[in-house]
Design a protein around this nucleic acid. Structure first.
Lengths: 240, 240
DNA sequence: CGGCCCCTTGAGCTGGTTCAAGAGATGTGG
DNA sequence: CCACATCTCTTGAACCAGCTCAAGGGGCCG
């Protein structure tokens, strides 16, 4: 897996072979960061565009009282952050959750790429819009789902996304997220996340332990979650 | 106010006079819709781009159990929906909340505009990114703020956004949102929204009644909300 | 004038939090 | 390679923010 990001664009057939080649050539060698390392912080000025090639990261925001809200999980093939090149300041931070390999495209080079290649603009825009759908899905979860549904929904989403990029087995996947991290993403306390996971385990639906997610009853999990994957926009039009 | 959308872009100095003229010329005469009218529904295929010129609308999603989650409020100058031209299907619906004047740019014309005018692409992308920041702020609210903070935060945001487009006085603004609508946006029951508004009124901080928002103690409201307007990205670079 | 929303308030309930404590895992330095 | 420190997971008990259910009043529109 040389470049998970381009694989993703290609996998969705949303970038031409030509554009993919140009984009890939623009990616400098990846750097490896340890877990819990901030790639960029709220308030920072424009920097390079990050592409997560391996490992996990997240967007998050710290509140005044020290609590953290995780806004999105970034897995191989996700990017962070387009914003930089258009807005003048980050309104949230991005950090690794595990050891992660990250490719960083300098902003100047990125701008040149976008000016020269409308196909790449389109591809990036598409990714952006899909990410936005994921944000909306999270709002729905936090506003209208109870804890067990919320946990189930996140597990469905992460599982599908992992399967899409080929890092999930039939019913198992490595998911190196602690219950604290899950709580910060779901707006729940880690204690309650623990109880909910225990309940799902007892029910024989899924299990998360030792960093491995095992879904033994996918239909029931999706039912509890009220999961509909339309927001992940997997079927789409070929780039114009 | 001929075209609130272009006024907004101009107000933020993010579009050239030339691009503004071209964009304005592309807007067909506005249509007026009654309140509670769906402009587009989840699952719909690409249609025209909507620009809200007058009145209020919202993005929302209905769940299986009939509950509704409002994802974003659209006021004059906001657009809905770029998604259409890139994704193949809406993952949420958009409806008017009040009588609203809406301009609809046909998609073919929009695509031509975007192809011919990189400046307009940039401007749209910027708006898109700002909207995304607003989504993230909502996630933070729902995940980490209690009801009174959440209500206060939404009021701060709406007030600032209204002031930015010139439809708010010094400490008053028309805000034609029912407590039911607010509840659907905030993930609270209308009953509880009522109690929280009552509390804020008793505290002498703000009042919402008869469709009019009056903020008598802005600093205290912002303090309760933990409000920081950085995510609205008002200071920004002039379009390249 | 009548019907339908919307707002308001009360009373009791409950899902999720808080606080606490111990056991298991993981990593680090000597 | 072991010892110790730190982080994570787990479970229990009490509490409380926000929900549910219910009922009455007010305003707007047909």
């Amino acid at each position: 897996m040389a470049n998970a990001f381009i694989d993703k664009l290609r996998g969705f057939q949303f970038i031409s072979a030509d554009d993919a080649r140009v984009l890939e050539a623009a990616c400098p060698p990846a750097r490896t960061f340890p877990a819990r390392h901030d790639l960029i912080r709220e308030g920072d000025k424009p920097g390079p565009l990050f592409l997560v090639l391996d490992g996990w990261a997240c967007r998050y925001k710290l509140l005044h009282d020290g609590t953290r809200q995780i806004l999105a999980f970034l897995m191989p093939g996700d990017f962070c952050d387009m914003h930089m090149s258009i807005l003048n300041e980050m309104d949230h931070s991005i950090a690794t959750l595990t050891t992660a390999r990250v490719s960083m495209i300098p902003r100047v080079q990125l701008d040149a790429l976008l000016d020269a290649r409308p196909g790449i603009v389109r591809a990036f825009w598409w990714v952006q819009l899909v990410d936005e759908g994921t944000l909306r899905a999270q709002i729905v979860s936090m506003g209208r789902r109870r804890s067990i549904e919320r946990v189930a929904h996140l597990m469905c989403e992460l599982y599908i996304r992992m399967r899409n990029i080929g890092i999930a087995d039939h019913d198992r996947a490595d998911l190196p997220l602690t219950q604290i991290v899950l709580g910060d993403a779901l707006g729940l306390t880690p204690v309650h996340v623990n109880r909910v996971l225990g309940r799902l385990r007892t029910l024989g639906i899924m299990e998360l332990s030792g960093g491995v997610l095992t879904i033994s009853d996918p239909p029931r999990l999706a039912l509890i979650a009220g999961f509909d994957d339309n927001y992940l926009h997997r079927r789409l039009r070929i780039a114009a």
